[in-house]
Design a protein around this nucleic acid. Structure first.
Length: 372
RNA sequence: GGGCGGUUCGUAUAGCGGCAAUUACGUUUGGCUGUAAACCAAAUGCCCUCGGGCUUCAGAGGUUCGAGUCCUCUACCGCCCA
């Protein structure tokens, strides 16, 4: 069975509409991949996903290994059954947590405070559990084993997400390490049926990004993910990085952009031929009280906690067909957030996810008509 | 009538001679891009050239270099004994 098929290409840009075929269903791309780190899309019960239109979600190996453990999930027959998620799933490799937790978080030990990241070597990464301080080891082989036990449809190679500000020298070294790790990921896989994405790094350097794109694209993989973006660089730098990489990726492979994101970013990167995007943006913002409103390039963020909504009888968006907008006023949503009522987090998340799906549906139409 | 205890910045509190004064909540503003995020940060007496200036802890008086803090009286609130 062919994994990815491009069904329409825009004449105006590199944008394309495609289908990703997985054992748990097809994904029409470009697609948004909401983040369900610990096997749950925070606040949203799986039975709602159909109505929202969510096609696929992203789970995290790092968090799931820490709890409940990959073995537990395996015993339950994989993450789909364990979490009762009937949609295609992608799993992250744990590479990002080494970056995001390793650099800023500290843990107390006998020797005093130390970062969670203990060591990165050719072999892999030594890390301290942010849960209990226990020492952990992540290698390409361990990541693959864990991801096979978790059992997502699409898995990510173990990579090193390079911090912003790294020198050319360090970035080169780390990118080459990620390449070596990719080969080991491919080598060590045992399970069939899962699709593996290699990850492009290269930091903020054009030569390294291009080299990485060519290297990763040439391997025996099912898709390519672009990593190491939105790690502190400017918007311009982020865009450049994707621009450098995209032209060097094989046309026939699906392209995932890790960690992006913002509505305006998605609208831009779709034109470079990016097929899938995972990001916490709609779900986290919702839980922090921010909801989206508008259409196309004209959109706004509403902060539901603002007192100006206290007496507002309107829904978030009149034209929105989602459960939240069909049934609840801004005033009530404001009230729920001010009182920290649980329903508020659910309703806001529901709307934001629905909003994103509507936006992607619009993107499909625009690509089909070569309007973007 | 007697005996205690209390009255502090929107609210609830801390404070036991050097204080514009603690903490929590509230309020306001900012932030959130492969989720240790239903979270985090800042501001919250007035003025300000950001160094400082001014006016504050129920009210009035007093002791002291210095009082939210100690003393006296008054007002109000609470509990107990009559």
């Amino acid at each position: 069975m062919q994994f990815f098929e491009v069904i329409k290409k825009s004449k105006k840009s590199k944008a394309r509409v495609g289908i990703l075929k997985t054992p748990h269903g097809d994904i029409l791309t470009p697609a948004f991949v909401p983040v369900a780190t610990k096997g749950t899309l925070k606040t949203i019960p799986p039975k709602d996903l159909k109505d929202i239109g969510t096609q696929v979600a992203f789970v995290n190996t790092f968090h799931l290994v820490l709890h409940p453990g990959a073995e537990v999930i395996e015993k339950f027959g994989g993450i789909h059954k364990y979490s009762n998620l009937a949609i295609p799933l992608m799993s992250d490799s744990a590479g990002f947590q080494v970056f995001s937790l390793g650099r800023k978080k500290k843990v107390q030990t006998k020797e005093g405070d130390e970062g969670l990241l203990l060591n990165i070597s050719e072999e892999g990464v030594q890390f301290r559990s942010p849960r209990d301080g226990k020492e952990l080891m992540f290698t390409p082989e361990i990541s693959m084993q864990n991801q096979e036990k978790i059992g997502a449809d699409i898995i990510m190679a173990f990579d090193e997400c390079i911090y912003y500000g790294a020198s050319h020298e360090y970035t080169k070294e780390a990118t080459e390490r990620t390449h070596e790790w990719l080969l080991r990921c491919i080598e060590s896989r045992k399970r069939k049926g899962q699709r593996l994405y290699g990850i492009v790094q290269g930091g903020v350097f054009k030569d390294l990004r291009e080299e990485s794109a060519k290297f990763v694209g040439a391997q025996e993989i099912d898709g390519v993910a672009i990593g190491g973006v939105s790690v502190g660089e400017t918007k311009k730098e982020m865009e450049e990085q994707v621009r450098w990489v995209a032209p060097h990726l094989p046309e026939e492979l699906p392209r995932h952009l890790l960690g992006i994101g913002r509505i305006e970013d998605i609208q831009e990167f779709v034109k470079l031929g990016i097929d899938t995007f995972d990001c916490v943006e709609p779900t986290r913002l919702a839980r922090n009280g921010t909801v989206f409103q508008g259409q196309g390039k004209k959109f706004a963020r509403l902060d539901l906690t603002k007192s100006r909504y206290l007496k507002d009888k309107h829904p978030i968006q009149q034209s929105c067909a989602c459960y939240t907008c069909q049934n609840f006023s801004l005033s009530f949503l404001h009230h729920l957030f001010r009182e920290r009522e649980l329903l508020g987090y659910y309703l806001a998340t529901y709307h934001n996810l629905f909003f994103f799906e509507q936006m992607f549906a619009e993107i499909h139409r625009l690509i089909a008509k070569s309007l973007i």
